[in-house]
């Protein structure tokens, strides 16, 4: 019984972690940007979904639609207002641009946090679940929303896989991540590809934010922790590696769940952080990283 409970809870939380970190690793893989405002994107989407779905009373689905739209808008704002101006700046030396992007997105994350806490307060809220009620799964009582969350996450992950591996657009994204200069020489417009990947990132972050918000609640105060956990998962899996991110999300999700059940819920974050430090020592490129 306990084993099944751990399996179900671990699966749900790990899938959410994977979805939450996927956009982060995608945007790094394709455009080399470590977006430290990542948690901000997730929380903005969740907050807007809550505002439209609950406060305005338009229901879970319209709320979710508005949340995804908010994710895209915030991702575009991050790219067009923060990242691109720094990348194109002639004042900042080329070799320092990455550091400036890092700092810029960090500050943007703080701005998003302050703005959200000003508008919505920092008291947590929950996004309306897409599916209310509970399911008795082999004797384990589990909220139906947990299943739908896992299902949606896997559908989204599958769609992304198809997009990257089976479409022309996906091939361009892959090429941009491997050799952007080569792609430009072949006549592709890199800026258009970057714009596209930021839109995809916005959709992914929007969906992840809404699902996280309905499962664990959301608040502007969660932004740094959400960025931190996506960062940990991505570093553990290997920066820019999508399969590594998936694998690391499940490793972290299950270690946390096991700790919470078998040791103490207060210590759930500790073993995963220890593992992260060990990986940094022994295998700095991450579990499935190339470099």
């Amino acid at each position: 019984m306990l084993v099944l409970q751990i399996l179900i809870d671990g699966f749900a939380i790990s899938t959410l972690y994977a979805l939450g970190a996927l956009g982060f690793t995608l945007i790094f893989g394709v455009s080399g940007v470590l977006n430290l405002a990542h948690g901000g994107l997730l929380v903005v989407s969740a907050m807007i979904a809550y505002y439209v779905g609950t406060r305005l009373g338009l229901g879970a689905y319209i709320g979710a639609g508005a949340g995804i739209l908010a994710g895209i808008v915030t991702a575009m704002a991050t790219y067009l207002l923060i990242v691109r101006p720094i990348q194109r700046s002639r004042v900042i030396p080329a070799r320092e641009r990455e550091l400036f992007v890092l700092t810029g997105t960090l500050l943007w994350g703080v701005m998003l946090q302050e703005m959200l806490s000003y508008i919505f307060t920092d008291t947590p809220i929950t996004v309306k679940p897409l599916l209310p009620g509970i399911v008795d799964f082999l004797g384990v009582t589990t909220p139906a929303n947990e299943f739908i969350t896992a299902a949606i996450s896997w559908v989204v992950l599958g769609c992304l896989w198809l997009l990257v591996n089976r479409t022309k657009m996906g091939k361009q994204l892959l090429a941009a991540s491997i050799n952007p200069r080569g792609l430009t020489l072949l006549g592709f417009e890199l800026s258009r590809i970057y714009l596209l990947v930021w839109i995809i990132y916005g959709v992914l972050a929007g969906i992840a934010g809404i699902l996280l918000g309905s499962f664990l609640g959301t608040s502007s105060e969660f932004i740094p922790a959400l960025t931190g956990s996506a960062f940990s998962i991505v570093v553990l899996g290997g920066l820019g590696s999508v399969s590594g991110t998936l694998f690391a999300a499940y490793v972290i999700g299950y270690i946390e769940t096991l700790t919470a059940y078998l040791v103490s819920p207060s210590l759930r974050n500790v073993p995963a952080l220890v593992l992260l430090i060990l990986v940094l020592y022994i295998r700095p490129q991450g579990l499935l990283g190339r470099r």
């Binding site: 809870d9 664990l216 609640g217 969660f222 922790a225 769940t257 919470a260 059940y261 819920p265």
Partner: peptide, 12 residues
């Protein structure tokens, strides 16, 4: 007693 940072209360 649990940490105020706890978000998933399922195990509890």
């Amino acid at each position: 007693r649990f940490s105020p940072d706890t978000t998933d209360f399922t195990p509890i």
